[in-house]
Design a protein around this nucleic acid. Structure first.
Length: 807
DNA sequence: GAGCACTGC
């Protein structure tokens, strides 16, 4: 291969001198400022205008010549940094160039060394590798392959492998020097995922021990200088992007209400600007749905003066079929020669990196996104609506110029862009609980975390917290060395608490059940269909003719309004399925109906009130069938068991408000976990279902992992987390029929109040039995829980004495 | 008696 490859894409524009500091000249693309007079008033409010020429106009060299220069630099250096905007084609082209440049032969003629190209996302790894295989005219999985969780599409013949950054990190755990690779390409490095950051530090070490290994770091322009500094002044080359110029507008005054401002701007664009689709960035699902409704309504009020609009919400938890709607074309004019239609996509950050929509000409950027923050003091991760970074703003505006010149409206002042926004979003490693990361690092053989070469070192307190947690779990000894237990735990793709629960579950004679619980809890989206779907089907059955118009006008919104729940798995989600009818009924009748359906449709909708009661009944039955009064974890287990007992039947799922696809995903996770269990000879076992200990053992095993996430019911009637003494409330979605004195919880969420979500009743006696080292009273803050524990210890001591006397 | 940015192993 090689010669017959067809390359249509021109790649390099200019090859900078090694170590040239291009970041400075390129910056944010702030050069080329121009006055622009096409809009000087925006909804009565003047906008300041600046023109950013994102494309740097430099002479273009023929492809072969640039390729040679690239190969030259690669041969002469161990590390190389390559910067380029998205859309430069570097992801598909560079690995192919590299393939031509390096010798991948090994003494063993049957096997060649590989080139690895990492991506932060699975879909990208898969689709890019497919495209490259096609370009090189080879079958995917042969010379070119990919490797992602649950799917290894590569073979002994594979020489170019695309994989997720997390996957490469996994591989490093068994192959610390990454000896099967000749070149490693870290793509999208500017995204600074946890895995990328760990790989940075790791690869820096590996490179010292493997002079034959080469590293190519590919990134967007903004962090180039920082990368260069980190990688000891490695040469830097540039691939120009192929973006069209984007005009940027700022407001002259700060906006008080960015949601209102965003909607106003959408309407203004629709009224005054030439055809072209609009992309609006908002922070979350609720806000997006709200905005969609309001935009539709406002434009609807304007009548025939303006063209029709198709308003499409976009966020990750939206069912895939709904997400596809963003790729549909804008609606045609209502009548021939009338004003053209427009597509308006209202999206979370997902449209900033993960999903690209062609045809976007206008971007509206209010300047906010939800970001994860971690507070090591109370060990809580939460989501906070925060101002975005300059880099993020830059990325957002770039979304307007993919197919033609575009415009970006920033709903903040230029001054605040310059002075208030930080240059980069804080990398994830500074915003996360690092327990899992530290465990991985230990497994990778990095003992001295304090001196590990992080590009951005995390707060010492965060590292200390992580070490402390791992020590309590028994994964690290008091010297901070990985224990045998920790070694096994690190092999599971789960949080340490969950791995611990799984590893010890055999000792509690319930590993089969704990496997199911862990699979159901771990990041899969499981959901119950809300009862409205049931309700619709009821109505459909009754008046099939009349309903079709309603369905057509409602069906989009039925999804959009979360009448179908398709959110991440937590028992909260699962259990809210049971609660859905009340809220949903209320929601659709009051907030939505009058806005989105005509009067005749409304009267039809009113007929749905009575089937709604049936739906309520069905949901109650579902709850009665699966709900376990002792806890949400056990409810999840019931759901999983019922699913298996009914042979994973799709229509059974539908009838029981269970999302089939999501349970299948959980089953997939479970199989992976089972394989890891067997690898370590961990027994797969169950307590007899008729035994009194069946659920007791499961709850004890869970406690063995989650003893640090316990809350105690105070006499005042509210819960306090153990040791941290935070006031928390049981999330109203819980399935308990009582308020237990002690609960373990899976999640601590900060929203309108401090909630603990997915909770299960446990007994105080178990705390002192299973985790005496954590419930050591000498090291315990004064509180009610402490006094209760003291009693429990005394009782335990007394019992022990009695049994000694009896002997 | 509430409401989940986005990934990944």
């Amino acid at each position: 291969m090689g010669t017959e490859r067809k390359r249509k894409v021109s790649l390099f524009d200019v090859v900078d001198e090694p170590s040239a500091k291009i970041a400075k000249s390129n910056g944010l693309g702030l050069t080329g400022m121009n006055a622009n007079s096409s809009i000087n008033k925006w909804n009565g409010r003047p906008y300041s205008q600046r023109y950013y020429d994102i494309l740097e106009k430099r002479k273009t060299l023929p492809v072969w010549q640039q390729k040679e220069e690239f190969l030259q630099v690669l041969r002469a250096n161990q590390t190389l940094i390559l910067v380029g905007e998205t859309g430069s084609g570097k992801t598909t082209q560079i690995p192919q160039f590299v393939l031509d440049a390096v010798d991948i032969e090994t003494p063993d003629k049957r096997r060649k060394m590989m080139i690895a190209c990492t991506q932060p996302r699975r879909v990208a790894a898969m689709s890019v590798s497919r495209r490259v295989a096609e370009e090189m005219d080879v079958t995917i999985g042969e010379e070119v392959g990919y490797s992602i969780r649950f799917e290894d599409c590569s073979s002994a013949r594979t020489v170019l492998k695309y994989l997720t950054d997390g996957m490469l990190l996994r591989e490093a755990m068994t192959d610390p020097l990454l000896e099967r690779y000749k070149v490693i390409i870290l793509d999208e490095a500017h995204e600074r995922t946890l895995a990328t950051d760990v790989l940075f530090g790791l690869l820096k070490e590996v490179l010292k021990n493997r002079p034959d290994l080469k590293l190519v770091v590919m990134s967007a322009t903004l962090e180039a200088e920082k990368f260069q500094g980190y990688f000891n002044g490695a040469p830097l080359m540039k691939v120009p992007g192929r973006l069209h110029p984007v005009e940027i507008f700022y407001t002259q005054e700060p906006e008080r209400d960015y949601l209102e401002a965003a909607i106003r701007t959408v309407v203004q664009i629709h009224m005054c600007e030439p055809p072209g689709d609009i992309l609006v960035f908002l922070t979350g699902e609720e806000e997006i749905e709200d905005a969609c409704r309001k935009i539709t309504k406002e434009v609807g009020n304007m009548g025939d003066q303006v063209g029709p609009v198709k308003v499409v919400p976009l966020y990750s938890t939206l069912p895939p079929a709904m997400q596809q709607k963003i790729f549909e074309p804008a609606p045609p004019p209502v009548k021939e020669g009338g004003p053209p239609g427009r597509k308006i996509v209202v999206s979370t950050n997902i449209a900033e990196t993960s999903l690209t929509i062609d045809g976007i000409v206008y971007v509206i950027d209010p300047g906010f996104s939800k970001q994860k923050v971690y507070n090591p003091r109370v060990r809580v991760e939460s989501l906070l609506v925060s101002p975005i970074s300059k880099a993020s703003a830059h990325q957002r505006s770039g979304r307007a110029g993919r197919t033609q010149p575009g415009k970006c409206f920033r709903l903040y002042t230029e001054k605040s862009f310059n002075n208030d926004l930080q240059p980069q979003t804080y990398p994830e490693i500074l915003r996360s609980n690092l327990a899992n990361t530290v465990l991985t690092l230990k497994k990778l053989g990095i003992d001295d975390l304090v001196h590990f070469d992080f590009m951005d070192p995390p707060a010492p307190e965060t590292l200390m917290r992580a070490l402390e947690v791992l020590n309590y779990l028994g994964a690290l000894d008091d010297e901070g060395n990985l224990t045998k237990l920790g070694e096994i735990m690190s092999e599971f793709p789960l949080d340490p608490q969950m791995s611990k629960m799984l590893v010890v579950s055999s000792e509690f004679n319930c590993s089969n059940e704990i496997l199911s619980v862990a699979a159901m809890l771990s990041g899969t989206s499981i959901c119950f269909l809300a009862c409205f779907v049931f309700l619709l089907s009821q109505v459909l059955g009754r008046c099939p003719g009349a309903i079709s118009c309603l369905i057509s006008s409602l069906s989009e919104r039925v999804f959009a309004l979360r009448l179908v729940h398709n959110t991440r798995l937590s028992s909260a989600t699962v259990l809210s399925g049971f609660h859905a009818p009340v809220g949903m009924h209320h929601r659709i009748s009051k907030q939505v109906l009058m806005q989105i359906v005509s009067v005749s449709q409304y009267s039809l909708m009113k007929q749905m009130v009575s089937p709604c009661l049936e739906a309520q009944k069905a949901a109650d039955e579902a709850k009665a069938r699966f709900g376990h009064i002792d806890g949400d974890h056990l409810t999840l287990l019931n759901v999983y068991h019922a699913y298996k007992q009914n042979n994973e039947d799709q229509s059974w799922c539908y009838e029981n408000f269970i999302n089939h696809r999501a349970l299948k995903a959980a089953d997939n996770v479970r199989q992976q976990l089972v394989r890891i269990m067997s690898r370590f000879n961990l027994k797969l076992c169950s307590t007899d279902f008729n035994s009194r200990d069946y659920y007791v053992n499961i709850r004890k095993a869970m406690l063995a992992g989650y003893f640090m996430q316990v809350a105690h019911l105070e006499r005042t009637g509210h819960y306090l987390t153990v040791k941290d003494n935070q006031v928390v409330h049981l999330h109203p979605s819980n399935c308990l029929d009582h308020k237990p004195e002690w609960v373990i919880y899976n999640e601590y969420v900060l929203t309108s109040r401090n909630f603990i979500r997915t909770v299960t009743d446990i007994r105080g006696e178990w705390l002192v039995d299973i985790a005496p080292h954590y419930y050591d009273l000498e090291n315990f803050p004064q509180c009610e829980a402490k006094r209760v524990l003291e009693k429990l210890y005394r009782k335990k001591e007394k019992d022990r004495e009695e049994s000694r006397n009896r002997r």
